[in-house]
Design a protein around this nucleic acid. Structure first.
Lengths: 406, 406
DNA sequence: CGTAGAATGTTCTTTGAGAGAACTAAATCC
DNA sequence: GGATTTAGTTCTCTCAAAGAACATTCTACG
């Protein structure tokens, strides 16, 4: 039951039903391909004549294509339809604290090429570096495909209107323009988004074939920070000034450790990778003490995880404590948003099985109902590149989105 | 950018544009009344012919009516349109711990009659009591108006599908059917909702004339519990199993006081009315010690507030501590949801001016950006009956909602 | 084989609402 | 008292949905 915003509404015109039904057809083809026109007619409860007309439109603009006819038990054989993805390319970029990933992919999320380089924190230099890599990638691996756009994922808050990065502490960026700069440098449309929201978008738009594509879920990222991207009614929530989902700085303990944000006892200060490392090293969490220590010991969260997997008691203890706090954090997400499921991304997903009992116990302690406590929680391994998939979704999603109406 | 749910979509038909535009007209009349057809045409950017046709439909079904023609500087005088509200009645019911409120109101939210009685906690008896009062109210005060439905607000979680109250600790209800029972007893459609969501609905649908009707905001209720109703993209968020918005049991301090829910350090255990009372009395918060004490001292939160207003230092100190924790709670809402504004309802709104500096300071400590810290926070006095207004909105809203499409 | 039956896909015709022009109504302004 | 302006109504035109009719292409079965 949505309220119509009388200050900004979209009136329906004679073309509106067609726009809506066209997108429904496109989405049905996307999720059920290969699919025949007759099947579309049955699923949509319209005549086959209508489907022919809608499909013709999608065919002529190249959104879908007609594949082979397939065998049928009786009657005329159907001509199957597919979404055109193989020759539509996307450049996906994931800028992280230490490294930047650039992937050339098709619209379906299939990787064509992947490059990595050390992150350049000076925005202008980064844009130039990216632009030259992108043109090279497209020249060497692009083939006959056309690049439809660039998806850029950054570790920080993004203002969707201006395309500026409002605050990215890991990069030291404050109110930095990269979207428009990269668009100018490459001549391609650029879509920018922060990491947790991008990961949520990936699950919404590039979810597993046949898997559930729920209209409401949350994606929790645990890395140097803790962020949440969440989807309500099939739409990602960005908030009034693009800062929704900052669960990382919710206090668990007002007298707890000092967080890098300056406040005390933040969830992030208990369960981020840095917090786990600090715990493992028996240190206080603070950028002053941690940075030099990490540089000298050359220790990273993946090392702690590897130690835990091979049975190191100290690593296990550190991670188990992290898991307990993560469980509390997840209970906060559950109580606040009541999502149908939660995905958890980050290095910690690689020791999920070992940590799950602790996490579940912490959730059970705090969830208000037994159904809420049983919310499915699905780890996502870093090896599936969730952020890069999010970057792809940024470019691909607008083509599948429902038209804005009313 | 909404994703189309391919498992449950609404196809557009030839009638869809009309349904959409009809609702836009209705909403424009609602928010700008009195308004002329010509003005509607300008606001919607359509021809006056189209408006005539849409308005005729709304007139013939009685949603709107034509008032007087008014003076104009030049040209033919316009005939003004109004939403028909005066003879469409709603029975609004607010069931609370100690008392139950029953209000007869028109569609615009104007009160016609208000009754109060001591809450009967046995569901069947309550339903019978309500039914007899409702028929009497309608007989004596109903006049020529027709009652369009009953809005029922309860202090607990509600399953919208079955209409059952899943859990209402204040009433001792668990999985109790009242919606359908009351509908059977009265022969009227009954809409049921929990208090924070209802209050949010009231602000969305019965917001002040000319005031902002934002598509995203939060409503925080502080009474015996702490709950949040929030709106995203013009739609209230209920969650997958109707338990979204339970911010009251987010921990502020894992070693803090034991909450009535059994966990420790919940926001609610720090900032609910009971917590304030316990603090004022210098007691631990627990139902075992508090209930007899409150009964013997006959002390309620309104007394503490009255003392604070007349300068009682102990009351001021207790409330100031509550305000500090409330500020932290609001910072959680801000960081998680980033709403454009937050309404705060509950008795504490009556000492808002005295507590505001403490609340603002607590928010500033924890909000991540300066714009987020500046989120407008608007207290709502109990004297405006926010819950009863929510009950009215439950009945009135469906008539103004955008049609579900795609 | 040849024909009935069944399923897919295309092409008609019908219908009804949006779009906009033309017209009527009712006021003010020289 | 006619020109002008604004509001509201009534036409006509057009185009997409709806659905019937038709063409196509397969299997099944005598």
């Amino acid at each position: 039951m949505r309220k119509i915003n009388t200050r900004s509404f979209v009136r329906a015109t004679r073309a509106t039903p067609r726009e809506i039904n066209r997108q429904i057809v496109l989405n049905l083809v996307h999720e059920h391909q290969p699919i025949s026109r007759a099947d579309l007619a049955r699923r949509m409860d319209i005549g086959r004549g209508m489907v022919t007309s809608l499909v013709d439109e999608l065919l002529s603009e190249g959104s879908i294509y007609e594949g082979d006819t397939i065998d049928a038990p009786r009657g005329r054989r159907p001509k199957m339809l597919y979404v055109r993805t193989h020759d539509r390319l996307v450049v996906a970029i994931d800028v992280r604290f230490s490294q930047t990933f650039v992937m050339l992919s098709d619209f379906a999320g299939t990787a064509i090429a992947l490059e990595t380089f050390e992150t350049v924190v000076v925005p202008a230099a980064l844009v130039q570096q990216l632009a030259s890599r992108i043109t090279r990638l497209l020249d060497t691996h692009g083939g006959t495909g056309r690049c439809e756009g660039i998806g850029l994922v950054v570790p920080g808050m993004v203002d969707q209107h201006s395309g500026r990065v409002l605050n990215a502490p890991q990069l030291g960026w404050k109110d930095v323009d990269v979207r428009d700069a990269l668009a100018r440098a490459t001549g391609l449309p650029v879509h920018i988004e922060n990491a947790p929201i991008a990961c949520a978008l990936a699950h919404m738009w590039l979810g597993q074939r046949g898997g559930p594509v729920p209209g409401d879920f949350a994606y929790v990222t645990v890395s140097d920070g803790v962020g949440v991207g969440f989807v309500v009614n099939g739409e990602v929530v960005r908030g009034h000034t693009n800062t929704a989902g900052e669960f990382g700085h919710i206090p668990l303990d007002l007298k707890g450790p000092t967080c890098l944000c300056g406040a005390r006892g933040c969830l992030e200060a208990h369960t981020s990778n840095l917090a786990t490392l600090a715990r493992y090293l028996g240190q206080q969490l603070s950028s002053a003490t941690m940075r030099p220590l990490l540089q000298s010991t050359r220790l990273s969260i993946t090392d702690v995880i590897a130690h835990a997997r091979s049975g190191d008691a100290r690593a296990i203890a550190a991670l188990d404590e992290t898991a307990r706090y993560l469980g509390i954090g997840l209970s906060i997400v559950i109580n606040a948003l009541n999502p149908s499921e939660i995905f958890v991304g980050g290095e910690i997903a690689d020791v999920w099985d070992q940590l799950l009992p602790t996490i579940r116990a912490a959730i059970a302690d705090r969830a208000l109902t037994s159904t809420a406590a049983a919310t499915p929680i699905i780890p996502e391994a870093a090896s599936s590149y969730p952020r890069l998939r999010g970057a792809i979704a940024l470019v691909a999603a607008p083509l599948f989105a429902a038209p804005r109406v009313a």
